[in-house]
Every structure is written in structure tokens, then in C-alpha cells.
């Protein structure tokens, strides 16, 4: 479904991706792990069109999408829940969701989509007319995911959705990701929490210094690599 081929990206003189190739197949949950600064966020931003790749291809459902603008990429069916959630804090919960459905205006499914999100995230119904900035961290993460789902993506990319959340909330977030996966969503998950993301992933990639250091099933990865280094480097 998504294929990256020899992807290079950099910030000015700082090279962040040096030839990454990876694949996400339809219906898969693929985990992308690696220490701080490995290039995980850069990879997701590049796919989402926020950054232009220096070199290499990004192919989504057979179509090259490298270098497209963010507003075009989301129309192709890719949604990103970014690292720091990027909730619009002065907008209400409802307005956040309404913008999430921006590319689906005029389809008349808005009401049904809102109902579906409120079922998935009951807290959003309670906070519907509240400013999103008043939500707790966990609630904001739920809103960020719900907002992304409002665009009906075929590929959902999550950048460290458990970051900074209380342990109980982290459980909820992982349960939710599993549920979305069971319901058929294709997911590319970036996580610091290596154990937990490998536990729910179909396949995984280990990114280091902007290249893929190892890949395979979670079991392969656990065997191949000295995970200790990731845990130590990974912090949290």
C-alpha cells in the first residue's frame, strides 16, 4: 500500500534520512522504532508532505506522492497524528473534528462520522462544545486521533501517541490502536514504547541514524537486535 524507496531527507545541512526503504501492506500494523533523533518523525513528515524528500520515492496505492503538498497527501488517503498532537486549542472539540472532515465536505456523512467518533471516544461527546485547550493530555490525544479519522484515511500514521500520558491512559491508547487495527485500518506506528508497540505490531522496522537497521516480525526484531540499546536510548 505504502512503499518508501531510498528516501533521503534533510534539514538544511543536517541529514535526517539517508536512504530509507520500507513497506506497509494493506491492513497491516507496522511499528517504526528507534532512539531519539533516529529520523522517525522526519519519515512521517516526509510521507505527509510536510517535508520534501531530497531523493527517493514514496508510492501510495501505486501512485508516486513524494513532494506533494500536505493538503494533497491527505486527499490521497493518508492521515498523520503528529508528535505533539497539534490540537487547535482555541477551537472547540467540535470545530477540531469539523476541520478533520474538511476534505469530506458535502458528502452528508458528517453527522454519522461524529456519532462514530463519540462512540469510539465517549469523552469527546462530553467535551463537545469545550475549547480543546481545556482537555487533558490523554483527551487531547484522543481528539487528535479522532480528528485524523474524520478524513476516512486508508493509512493512519501515529507519531508517539503514548508520549507524556499517564500509564492508565497509555493502556487505553494501545487498546484503541489494536481495535482500529482489528477493524481493518492500516497503521504506521512510531513509538518510544518499544515493548508495547512490538506486542501489537504485525511487522516492525528499527530506524537508526536515518537508515533501517533491522526489520521483520516483532519476534525477529527482538532476536536480531540488542534491544537494550533502544531502551536506554529511548528514555521514557
Amino acid at each position: 500500500m505504502l512503499r518508501l524507496d531510498d528516501l533521503h531527507a534533510q534539514y538544511g545541512a543536517i541529514v535526517a534520512l539517508r536512504g530509507v526503504s520500507l513497506e506497509v501492506n494493506e491492513g497491516e500494523l507496522v511499528a517504526l522504532v528507534g532512539v531519539n533523533g533516529a529520523g522517525k518523525t522526519t519519515l512521517l513528515s516526509t510521507v505527509a508532505g510536510v517535508m520534501r524528500p531530497r531523493r527517493g520515492d514514496i508510492v501510495f496505492e501505486g501512485e508516486p506522492i513524494a513532494g506533494l503538498t500536505p493538503e494533497t497527501v491527505v486527499r490521497k488517503g493518508i492521515a498523520l497524528v503528529p508528535e505533539d498532537r497539534e490540537i487547535f486549542s482555541d477551537l472547540t472539540v467540535e470545530e477540531n473534528l469539523r476541520l478533520g472532515a474538511y476534505i469530506r465536505r458535502g458528502r452528508g456523512e458528517y453527522g454519522a462520522d461524529i456519532d462514530r467518533m463519540c462512540e469510539l471516544f465517549p469523552i469527546l461527546r462530553e467535551r463537545f462544545r469545550q475549547d480543546a485547550g481545556t482537555l487533558s493530555g490523554g483527551e487531547q490525544q484522543q481528539l487528535a486521533i479522532a480528528r485524523a479519522l474524520m478524513s476516512h484515511p486508508r493509512l493512519l500514521m501515529l507519531d508517539e501517541p503514548s508520549l507524556g500520558l499517564a500509564p492508565k491512559i497509555v493502556d487505553q491508547v494501545f487498546a484503541l490502536i489494536e481495535q482500529l487495527h482489528r477493524d481493518g485500518m492500516t497503521i504506521l506506528l512510531v513509538e518510544q514504547n518499544v515493548t508495547r508497540s512490538l506486542a501489537i505490531a504485525d511487522r516492525a522496522y528499527l530506524l537508526n541514524m536515518g537508515t533501517v537497521q533491522a526489520s521483520g516480525t516483532p519476534a525477529d526484531l527482538r532476536q536480531d537486535v540488542d534491544m537494550e540499546s533502544i531502551y536506554l536510548g529511548g528514555g521514557d
Partner: peptide, 12 residues
């Protein structure tokens, strides 16, 4: 508030 995020939701 957040221009890039707004674009990521499809707003040109």
C-alpha cells in the same frame, strides 16, 4: 494557530 496542521487536514 497551527498552519501546517491545518494544511495536513486538507485545507489548501
Amino acid at each position: 494557530d497551527k498552519f501546517t496542521m491545518t494544511r495536513m487536514l486538507g485545507v489548501p
